[in-house]
Amino acid sequence: MARKKRFWSVVCIVFFVACSFGAALAGSEFSNDGNGRKGKYLYRKNCRTCHDGSSAAEISPNTKTQAQWQRTFNTYERLECAEEWQKMDQGDLTDIFTYLYDHAYDSPQPATCG
């Protein structure tokens, strides 16, 4: 009886942890419903200053696919310019993500000079 109780306790804990982790993952998922026009400027202001070819490699929206941008934003702590990310709020990040995602390599409108 006690073993059975312990078993269900463990199951509950595992379920709770799994749910929390899932929720955390879901929370960090970026969506492209921000302001892409504003994102283009914020990208110039916050990203290109670091991704200047010396501190970090130069990038543009079409250097990655939409899935790659999604992964990049979910794991930005690993990036060379991670410190810059801390300075921006969630709204700015969403705007930048929207710009990059909407003009990614496999998007309907990959970034050009325009």
């Binding site: 026009r37 283009k40 400027y41 914020l42 110039r44 202001k45 325009g114």
Partner: peptide
Amino acid sequence: PTGARSGESFYMLQD
């Protein structure tokens, strides 16, 4: 031609 650079310019002035 697309609103991209002009929109960016607008937000640059806002900032």
